[in-house]
């Protein structure tokens, strides 16, 4: 037994060392410097909890960035995963449209975020964008809406650049569905279950783990979302589309305040860990199958 443990430690060691070198060291630096006043050219000084207090008491933009990040995590974990799962259930029926639709639905996932941002800037351009042109053609009246810059539509417009494109979730769920034995479908059929009932009462419960994994992936993607926001709104108008990564970026490169940015980084990690705990709890992902 002891011998087996030794082997386990030996094999885990390279991974642990790499993790410690790349991530753990950075995390320690991040955490310690979050209690300092640190900017290029200034001596690092310990300021205790000042950065954290400033963020929560005097920084409305930070509060809004936390709120927006939390909303986007919520939307991505629910609507996005729901969309991907529904599409997977439809495509799994192997109809004539399954293959082309699956390929088309996955396209946004293979385009780089920067290119996607540019694409949406064109599609939603207030002067010549496709969306306004379509509305103008359909309604017959000149329609001009500045989707990304009007404070009333900015949040929704940015959200729509990623929320519906759940190709990755679809692929993951379909891969898991392919492992379900035909016997189970046949048994459901013999019991008189319709296709819809089979999906709801047989397939979906079996998909619990992969849906849980998809929710984790979807939620964590929102903790890293920066590129599309940077390409489209830069967090504006005001701070309507500001999220935590974007605000960290601005705090570093516009305000040259590394201490404050690292405090935000610590809070972002805490938010991520909390979100993961909740998701794993909801899907009982830590519980061993009997």
């Amino acid at each position: 037994m002891i011998n087996r443990k030794k082997w386990a430690v030996l094999f885990l060691l390279p991974g642990i060392l790499l993790f410690a070198f790349v991530f753990l060291g950075s995390l320690v630096v991040l955490f310690t410097t979050s209690f300092t006043d640190w900017a290029i050219g200034r001596k690092i000084t310990f300021v205790g909890l000042k950065n954290y207090i400033d963020l929560f008491t005097g920084d409305k933009t930070f509060i809004e960035s936390v709120k927006n990040t939390a909303i986007w995590i919520g939307l991505q974990s629910t609507f996005h995963v729901f969309t991907g799962t529904v599409v997977a259930l439809i495509l799994a029926k192997n109809k004539w449209y399954s293959s082309p639709v699956r390929a088309i639905f996955f396209i946004p996932n293979v385009i780089s975020s920067a290119a996607l941002g540019m694409l949406f800037l064109c599609i939603m351009n207030p002067q010549y964008g496709l969306v306004n042109t379509l509305v103008t053609k359909i309604s017959g009246n000149t329609f001009s809406q500045n989707w990304f810059m009007d404070p009333k539509t900015a949040f929704l417009s940015v959200t729509m650049t990623w929320l519906p494109y759940a190709g990755l979730v679809t692929i993951l769920v379909m891969a898991e569905m392919s492992s379900i034995s035909e016997d189970i479908y046949e048994a459901a059929k013999i019991d008189g279950a319709s296709l819809f009932q089979t999906d709801i009462y047989v397939v979906l419960p079996l998909m619990k783990n992969i849906i849980g994994t998809s929710v984790v992936l979807a939620a964590t993607s929102m903790l890293q979302k920066l590129d599309i926001i940077m390409m489209t709104t830069q967090g504006g108008p005001g701070s309507k589309t500001m999220n935590m990564p974007m605000y960290i970026y601005k705090t570093v490169f516009t305000n040259n305040n590394y201490g404050l940015a690292n405090a935000q980084g610590v809070l972002l990690i805490i938010l991520g860990v909390l979100a993961l705990r909740i998701i794993r709890g909801l899907f009982k992902m830590d519980k061993k199958e009997d």
């Binding site: 500045n146 810059m149 404070p151 009333k152 830069q234 504006g236 108008p237 005001g238």
Partner: peptide, 16 residues
């Protein structure tokens, strides 16, 4: 300068 860029939309749409 950065702040003016993100606040002008609010000014234009009467949000500030």
């Amino acid at each position: 300068v950065d702040e003016t860029a993100v606040r002008y939309p609010e000014l234009a749409y009467d949000e500030c």
